[in-house]
């Protein structure tokens, strides 16, 4: 399977891996974005006090063919990327780009509101923004 779930208990292992990855990338030893240990598409996740932002790097796809779902706090991105047409009698010298069906799953924090999710696609990047519930946003408490 080419996808991996981000279980909360993997947090420390994930941080370790991330640090290693960043170190490697800083040295440019392994700068590939194919990242077959993660699968396609590569994803970045971040958060702000108001929302959780997910960036999926899915170049060359029709937005209609992407399926984005949030169910029970789990975000699923799936779709299919077609291989390029190879004319008859042509030689394929390098074949590194992903083709085929894909599916990736991210568990979202508990305080997100699935109804406030929005997604847009541009320049090959799918950006999903899921708002946090009003009640869980940081508030200043007045001292009486």
């Amino acid at each position: 399977m080419l996808y991996r779930t981000l279980f909360p208990r993997d947090l420390f292992a994930e941080m370790d891996r991330l640090q290693r990855a960043l170190r490697h990338q800083a040295l440019d030893l392994s700068p590939s974005i194919r990242g077959m240990t993660h699968g396609f598409p590569a994803m970045n996740v971040g958060s702000t006090p108001r929302s959780v932002e997910v960036y999926a790097f899915v170049p060359g796809i029709e937005p209609d063919s992407l399926d984005v779902q949030i169910e029970k706090g789990v975000l699923t991105i799936s779709g299919e990327r077609k291989a390029e047409d190879v004319p008859e009698q042509a030689a394929v010298h390098t074949d590194e780009r992903f083709a085929g069906r894909f599916r990736r799953v991210v568990s979202l924090p508990d305080d997100v509101d699935a109804n406030s999710a929005s997604a847009r696609y541009g320049d090959g990047v799918l950006t999903i923004s899921v708002g946090r519930r009003e009640a869980s946003r940081p508030r200043r408490i007045t001292i009486q």
């Binding site: 990338q25 040295l27 974005i33 009698q89 394929v92 390098t94």
Partner: peptide, 14 residues
Amino acid sequence: NAALLPPVDVIEDA
């Protein structure tokens, strides 16, 4: 200047 290596497909025909 460190950069990512984009994956490529290279197809040669006549």
